[in-house]
Each structure stands twice: as structure tokens, then as C-alpha cells.
Amino acid sequence: MSDMSAKNKLKIYPKSVICDDESVLIGDVTISSGCLIHPHATIHAKSGPIIVGENCLIEEYVTIVHDTGTVDLDNSGPTLVIGSNNVFEVGCTVEAAAIGERNVFECKSYVSNLVTVSNNCVIGAGCQLVDEHHLPENTVIYGKRSEQRETIEKQKSLSMQLDHLRKLLPNYHHIKKPTFDPKKPREIA
């Protein structure tokens, strides 16, 4: 079951699919339209709000933490905005200070809160970024030593994968209902 204490401000836009089975959403978290969150994922807005952009895919055992080093019980600190069309693969841990659009965080990768990720970047499976770093657009991090290179390829569209999962996951998991409709001035009861 999800962790939903009085301090949590969860805002779920319509057309999102969030598996309620043991997913943990803590703090001021906004899930934009079209996102898909698998079971056992954790999103923790520790130092301020987190806004997950449209059509992001967050797989099993992913941990996304907004941690600037200070705990903000009111979640009124700086906002971590995660851009649209990002993929967080199984078991990755992401604490990045900023995340642009169309990035892929592969299985078991780790990105510390000293890192900013621009657009169209790939952090390879098992790679770790722990030192202060800004990843320019089209960067690929790969290999045992987390080496860096540039790619000329754009990330492939997620639309077919997201459409398939939107149909499949509700057959096997309880799904959180939307709590916010941007067309209405107040939240859904």
C-alpha cells in the first residue's frame, strides 16, 4: 500500500496509471497526465515538491528522491521538475538536482543530487554519477567507469510501450484514481 500521511500532497492528473501495490509516494508529489508508475516504485519529496512531467515511465524498484541535503517538513523548498517522456528503468536511484526531457536511467543506475541532467541523455545500466556534474544534451554515460560520450540519436517514442502498459497493468494491479483535474479549479474529492 502507498504511504499517505497527513503531510503528503499527492496530485494525480487524469490518464496516469499508478499501481497502488506497494508504491510509495511521500510528500508533495504531482504526477502529470500520461505517466505510468509500476508497483514498488518510490518517489520521495524530501526537500521540496516533485513534479513528474507527462508520459514518464517509472518501473519497479525505482527510487526518485528530491534531497537537497535539508529536510523540509512543509515541502516548501525548491521544486524538482522532471521533464516529459523520461524512462526510469528497474532498480535505478535518481536524486538529480534537475531532469530535462527524453532521458533514460537504465537498470541499477545511480545519479546523486549533485548532478543535473539536460535532455536526451542516457545513464547506462549500473553506472554511478556521484560527483557534481552537468550532463549536456545527448550525453551517454556508459561502462564500469561511467565514461561519457555524445550521441546523435534521439530517444525513441514511448507511446506504444505506454499504451500497452496502460491496458495491461489495470488487469493485474489496483490503480490509484486521479485526484486532480486541470479543467476544474479544485481537486477531485
Rank of each mutant, 00 (worst) to 15 (best):
G69S: 10
D72T: 05
I141K: 00
V130R: 12
G48W: 01
Q128F: 01
T70F: 11
I26C: 00
N119W: 05
K15E: 15
L80S: 04
T63N: 15
T42K: 13
H38M: 09
I26G: 04
V117P: 03
R145C: 09
L57Q: 12
C19Y: 02
V17Y: 03
D21C: 01
K108Y: 14
E147D: 14
D74V: 14
K15T: 03
G77K: 09
R149V: 07
I51K: 02
E95W: 14
S112F: 01
L57F: 14
L114D: 14
I12T: 03
V104Q: 07
E137K: 11
P136Y: 10
G34Q: 03
V29F: 03
G53C: 13
T42R: 15
E22C: 10
G77N: 10
G100N: 12
S16D: 09
T68L: 06
N86M: 06
D21A: 07
A98I: 02
A41F: 09
I31H: 06
I37L: 05
C127V: 13
C121I: 11
I82M: 02
T139Y: 03
E132A: 10
E54D: 01
I12G: 00
E59S: 13
T63W: 15
C127E: 08
Q148M: 09
E147T: 13
V62Y: 05
C56G: 10
V104T: 03
H44L: 01
H133Q: 15
L57E: 13
D72H: 11
S32K: 04
K108C: 14
S47A: 03
V115M: 01
I64E: 09
V111Q: 01
D67P: 07
E95Q: 10
